Amino acid sequence: MTEYKLVVVGAGGVGKSALTIQLIQNHFVDEYDPTIEDSYRKQVVIDGETCLLDILDTAGQEEYSAMRDQYMRTGEGFLCVFAINNTKSFEDIHHYREQIKRVKDSEDVPMVLVGNKCDLPSRTVDTKQAQDLARSYGIPFIETSAKTRQGVDDAFYTLVREIRKHKEKMSKDGKKKKKKSKTKCVIM
Protein backbone atom coordinates (compact mmCIF):
# COMPACT_ATOMS: atom_id res chain seq x y z
CA MET A 1 0.00 0.00 0.00
CA THR A 2 1.38 3.38 -1.01
CA GLU A 3 1.77 5.99 1.72
CA TYR A 4 1.43 9.69 0.95
CA LYS A 5 2.85 12.38 3.24
CA LEU A 6 0.53 15.37 3.00
CA VAL A 7 1.12 18.66 4.78
CA VAL A 8 -1.63 21.23 5.43
CA VAL A 9 -0.27 24.79 5.54
CA GLY A 10 -1.81 28.24 5.84
CA ALA A 11 -2.32 31.16 8.19
CA GLY A 12 -3.80 30.75 11.67
CA GLY A 13 -7.57 30.36 11.82
CA VAL A 14 -8.20 29.39 8.17
CA GLY A 15 -9.55 25.94 9.10
CA LYS A 16 -6.61 23.61 8.49
CA SER A 17 -7.45 21.44 11.51
CA ALA A 18 -11.19 21.55 10.78
CA LEU A 19 -10.56 20.30 7.21
CA THR A 20 -8.25 17.53 8.41
CA ILE A 21 -10.58 16.37 11.20
CA GLN A 22 -13.54 16.46 8.81
CA LEU A 23 -11.63 14.14 6.44
CA ILE A 24 -10.39 11.79 9.18
CA GLN A 25 -13.31 11.70 11.63
CA ASN A 26 -16.26 13.01 9.60
CA HIS A 27 -17.16 15.76 12.01
CA PHE A 28 -16.81 19.53 12.23
CA VAL A 29 -14.87 21.16 15.04
CA ASP A 30 -16.14 24.70 15.44
CA GLU A 31 -14.12 25.88 18.45
CA TYR A 32 -10.75 27.40 17.58
CA ASP A 33 -7.82 25.80 19.35
CA PRO A 34 -4.53 26.86 17.73
CA THR A 35 -2.51 23.85 16.58
CA ILE A 36 1.18 23.40 17.23
CA GLU A 37 1.43 20.24 15.15
CA ASP A 38 -0.86 17.22 14.81
CA SER A 39 -0.46 14.10 12.72
CA TYR A 40 -3.29 11.94 11.37
CA ARG A 41 -3.41 8.74 9.33
CA LYS A 42 -6.25 7.39 7.24
CA GLN A 43 -6.56 4.55 4.75
CA VAL A 44 -8.58 5.50 1.67
CA VAL A 45 -9.18 4.27 -1.86
CA ILE A 46 -8.36 6.83 -4.56
CA ASP A 47 -8.93 5.86 -8.20
CA GLY A 48 -9.05 2.18 -7.25
CA GLU A 49 -5.76 2.27 -5.32
CA THR A 50 -5.79 1.70 -1.56
CA CYS A 51 -3.43 4.16 0.05
CA LEU A 52 -2.48 5.49 3.44
CA LEU A 53 -2.65 9.23 3.95
CA ASP A 54 -0.20 10.53 6.53
CA ILE A 55 -1.43 14.07 7.15
CA LEU A 56 0.48 16.70 9.08
CA ASP A 57 -1.71 19.53 10.34
CA THR A 58 0.59 22.46 11.01
CA ALA A 59 0.68 25.64 13.08
CA GLY A 60 -0.43 28.77 11.26
CA GLN A 61 0.71 31.10 14.02
CA GLU A 62 3.86 33.03 13.22
CA GLU A 63 5.54 32.06 16.52
CA TYR A 64 5.83 28.48 15.22
CA SER A 65 7.30 29.42 11.85
CA ALA A 66 10.72 27.99 12.80
CA MET A 67 9.18 24.50 12.71
CA ARG A 68 8.05 24.90 9.08
CA ASP A 69 11.30 23.98 7.34
CA GLN A 70 11.36 20.62 9.11
CA TYR A 71 7.87 19.48 8.09
CA MET A 72 8.26 20.94 4.61
CA ARG A 73 11.33 18.74 4.09
CA THR A 74 9.36 15.55 4.83
CA GLY A 75 6.12 16.41 3.00
CA GLU A 76 5.45 15.04 -0.49
CA GLY A 77 2.52 17.35 -1.21
CA PHE A 78 0.99 20.46 0.30
CA LEU A 79 -2.55 21.77 0.76
CA CYS A 80 -2.13 25.56 0.81
CA VAL A 81 -5.21 26.76 2.68
CA PHE A 82 -6.68 30.24 2.96
CA ALA A 83 -10.09 31.39 4.22
CA ILE A 84 -12.35 33.00 1.61
CA ASN A 85 -13.34 35.60 4.23
CA ASN A 86 -9.74 36.57 5.07
CA THR A 87 -7.79 38.44 2.38
CA LYS A 88 -4.56 38.42 4.43
CA SER A 89 -4.62 34.60 4.57
CA PHE A 90 -4.94 34.57 0.76
CA GLU A 91 -1.99 36.96 0.39
CA ASP A 92 0.06 34.76 2.77
CA ILE A 93 -0.21 31.80 0.36
CA HIS A 94 2.60 33.27 -1.75
CA HIS A 95 4.97 33.16 1.24
CA TYR A 96 4.08 29.55 2.08
CA ARG A 97 4.59 28.50 -1.53
CA GLU A 98 7.96 30.26 -1.78
CA GLN A 99 9.12 28.68 1.48
CA ILE A 100 8.06 25.20 0.29
CA LYS A 101 9.92 25.66 -3.01
CA ARG A 102 13.03 26.90 -1.17
CA VAL A 103 13.05 24.05 1.37
CA LYS A 104 12.34 21.40 -1.29
CA ASP A 105 14.86 23.10 -3.62
CA SER A 106 12.42 22.66 -6.50
CA GLU A 107 10.04 24.71 -8.62
CA ASP A 108 7.89 21.62 -9.12
CA VAL A 109 6.30 20.55 -5.82
CA PRO A 110 2.81 18.96 -5.70
CA MET A 111 0.38 21.52 -4.23
CA VAL A 112 -3.32 22.30 -4.19
CA LEU A 113 -4.70 25.76 -3.42
CA VAL A 114 -7.68 25.47 -1.06
CA GLY A 115 -10.20 28.24 -0.36
CA ASN A 116 -11.90 27.17 2.86
CA LYS A 117 -15.07 28.44 4.58
CA CYS A 118 -17.02 28.71 1.30
CA ASP A 119 -20.23 28.23 3.34
CA LEU A 120 -19.81 31.75 4.78
CA PRO A 121 -21.61 34.68 3.11
CA SER A 122 -18.88 37.20 4.02
CA ARG A 123 -16.49 36.46 1.14
CA THR A 124 -13.55 38.86 0.64
CA VAL A 125 -11.54 36.68 -1.77
CA ASP A 126 -13.25 36.25 -5.12
CA THR A 127 -13.28 32.75 -6.65
CA LYS A 128 -11.77 34.16 -9.85
CA GLN A 129 -8.86 35.70 -7.90
CA ALA A 130 -8.06 32.30 -6.40
CA GLN A 131 -8.46 30.51 -9.75
CA ASP A 132 -6.11 33.02 -11.37
CA LEU A 133 -3.51 32.54 -8.64
CA ALA A 134 -3.71 28.74 -8.91
CA ARG A 135 -3.42 28.96 -12.70
CA SER A 136 -0.33 31.18 -12.41
CA TYR A 137 1.21 28.57 -10.06
CA GLY A 138 0.13 25.69 -12.32
CA ILE A 139 -1.76 23.97 -9.49
CA PRO A 140 -5.41 22.96 -8.91
CA PHE A 141 -7.79 25.16 -6.89
CA ILE A 142 -10.64 23.76 -4.80
CA GLU A 143 -13.15 25.57 -2.62
CA THR A 144 -14.07 23.76 0.57
CA SER A 145 -16.21 24.02 3.65
CA ALA A 146 -15.03 22.02 6.64
CA LYS A 147 -18.46 22.75 8.15
CA THR A 148 -20.60 21.27 5.35
CA ARG A 149 -17.84 18.89 4.11
CA GLN A 150 -18.07 20.39 0.60
CA GLY A 151 -14.88 19.71 -1.35
CA VAL A 152 -13.01 18.16 1.60
CA ASP A 153 -12.37 14.73 0.06
CA ASP A 154 -11.76 16.37 -3.31
CA ALA A 155 -9.00 18.62 -1.90
CA PHE A 156 -7.03 15.80 -0.28
CA TYR A 157 -7.62 13.32 -3.12
CA THR A 158 -6.60 15.89 -5.74
CA LEU A 159 -3.35 16.39 -3.84
CA VAL A 160 -2.69 12.63 -3.92
CA ARG A 161 -3.28 12.68 -7.68
CA GLU A 162 -0.83 15.58 -8.02
CA ILE A 163 1.79 13.60 -6.07
CA ARG A 164 1.21 10.57 -8.32
CA LYS A 165 1.65 12.72 -11.45
CA HIS A 166 4.82 14.20 -9.99
CA LYS A 167 6.28 10.77 -9.14
CA GLU A 168 5.42 9.49 -12.61
CA LYS A 169 7.09 12.49 -14.22
CA MET A 170 10.18 12.10 -12.03
CA SER A 171 10.53 8.41 -12.86
CA LYS A 172 10.20 9.16 -16.60
CA ASP A 173 12.85 11.86 -16.28
CA GLY A 174 15.04 9.41 -14.37
CA LYS A 175 14.68 6.77 -17.11
CA LYS A 176 15.61 9.32 -19.78
CA LYS A 177 18.75 10.24 -17.85
CA LYS A 178 19.67 6.58 -17.37
CA LYS A 179 19.25 5.89 -21.10
CA LYS A 180 21.51 8.81 -21.94
CA SER A 181 24.19 7.67 -19.52
CA LYS A 182 24.40 4.23 -21.18
CA THR A 183 25.98 5.73 -24.30
CA LYS A 184 29.62 4.72 -24.36
CA CYS A 185 32.59 6.34 -25.93
CA VAL A 186 35.21 4.09 -27.53
CA ILE A 187 38.68 5.48 -28.12
CA MET A 188 40.86 3.55 -30.60
Rank of each mutant, 00 (worst) to 15 (best):
T2W: 07
T2N: 14
E3S: 09
E3D: 12
E3A: 08
E3P: 14
Y4A: 09
Y4E: 11
Y4W: 06
K5S: 13
L6Q: 00
L6W: 03
L6G: 03
V7F: 15
V7C: 10
V7Y: 12
V7Q: 03
V8R: 01
V9C: 11
G10Y: 00
G10K: 00
G10T: 00
G10C: 02
A11W: 07
A11F: 13
A11D: 13
G12Q: 04
G12D: 09
G12I: 04
G12L: 05
G13P: 13
G13W: 11
V14I: 14
V14M: 13
V14P: 04
V14Y: 08
K16S: 06
S17E: 00
S17G: 03
S17R: 01
A18H: 03
A18D: 04
A18L: 00
L19I: 12
L19T: 14
L19D: 13
L19S: 14
L19V: 14
T20H: 03
I21N: 13
I21R: 15
I21M: 14
Q22R: 07
Q22G: 09
Q22S: 11
Q22C: 05
L23R: 06
L23F: 14
L23G: 15
I24F: 09
Q25E: 10
Q25I: 03
N26M: 14
N26E: 06
H27Q: 13
F28A: 02
V29S: 11
D30F: 10
E31S: 06
E31W: 09
Y32C: 04
Y32A: 03
Y32H: 12
D33F: 15
D33Q: 13
D33L: 14
T35H: 01
T35Q: 02
I36V: 02
I36P: 01
I36L: 15
E37P: 00
E37G: 02
E37M: 02
D38Q: 02
D38I: 01
D38M: 05
D38T: 03
S39Q: 07
S39G: 15
S39A: 13
Y40F: 12
Y40E: 05
Y40M: 06
Y40P: 01
Y40W: 11
R41E: 05
R41L: 08
R41P: 13
K42V: 10
K42W: 03
Q43L: 04
Q43E: 05
Q43I: 04
V44T: 10
V44H: 06
V44L: 06
V45N: 11
V45G: 10
V45D: 07
V45L: 09
V45Q: 12
I46Q: 10
I46N: 09
I46L: 12
I46F: 07
D47N: 08
D47E: 08
D47I: 02
G48D: 11
G48I: 07
E49R: 11
E49W: 06
E49S: 12
E49D: 11
T50R: 06
T50H: 06
T50M: 05
C51K: 05
C51P: 08
L52V: 13
L52K: 12
L53Y: 12
L53C: 11
L53R: 01
L53W: 07
D54W: 02
D54G: 03
I55C: 13
I55S: 08
I55R: 02
I55E: 01
I55D: 00
L56W: 14
L56M: 10
L56H: 06
D57Y: 01
D57V: 03
D57K: 02
T58C: 12
T58W: 14
G60C: 10
G60E: 08
G60T: 06
Q61E: 15
Q61I: 14
Q61G: 15
Q61R: 03
E62Q: 10
E62A: 08
E62W: 11
E62S: 10
E63S: 07
E63C: 05
E63M: 04
E63Y: 05
E63W: 03
Y64R: 03
Y64M: 15
Y64P: 12
